[in-house]
Write a protein that binds this DNA or RNA. Sequence first.
DNA 1: ATGTCGATATGCTATCGA
Length: 292
Amino acid sequence: MGVLAFFLLPSPATLAKPLHMKLATWNVNSVNARLPLLLEWFREAQPDVCGLQEIKCIDEKFPIEAFESLGYNCAVHGQKTYNGVAILSKFPMSDIRRGLPKADDDQDDHSRYIEAVIEAPEPVRFGCLYLPNGNPVHTDKYAYKLRWLERLHSHAEALLKLEEMTVLAGDFNIIPTKADLWKEGPWLDDALYQPAVRRAYQGLKNLGYTDAFEAHSTFSGSPEDNRYTFWDYQAGAWPKNEGIRIDHHLLSPQAADRLADVVIHKDTRGRTHDEAKPSDHVPVVVELTTKS
DNA sequence: ATGTCGATATGCTATCGA
């Protein structure tokens, strides 16, 4: 009978181990000012992939060696002083795109989008975005935000046609619903909470993308008591827990089918390390079930 | 509304963007 069991059970070599691939996003508000905290968090959390926003440096000043020493490959789309995005990945990356597609009359010199195929055993296309803030409304900054959302919509639509596992993650600068802020009043005139902006976010979902946090909260046995991802430096927002949820993962249907967990690393908002102060955003980590 | 940051050059204080 020992022989029978040997034949009926799959051997360890052929049994595909279920794995969880961790895909994170974090607006770091200067990668160099934040570096000691970032390295500490990467050692602990061990994300497979992490999109960074607001790195606030040109490519040449990105601390590539520090991340390589932790086992990450780096794809960087930097800019002097403002914006700047990057993808860190334990797996090799291919098909790297810097910037969203532009129409002929679009002028956009901000570094706000980078995308790569993560060459894991089951590849994932990962887009890292830093959507314009858009304040104050009724200015060209707000118009730029709306136009950027149109361009993101078009690109997101094109990506769905590839029928891949795709994750669009980043600082969307969009508060999707009333549940995603502590009090509505102060935000009614803010570009992060305008109906047109929230409608555009819903438009991305209507294409077929799933908001990972929203989906996870519908089947999570113990929903997180915190859903905020950002607390302003000003006016004591953090000690008063006056936060908002603006850092999101949108999943293609192929990725949404694998959604296993969403974790907001709230504790990093109160941490310091080697003189480095916390970012005003915290990392959000999505776990997808994948095969080895 | 504002109790804070970070990068920069207008450069040891002010300005911008968030």
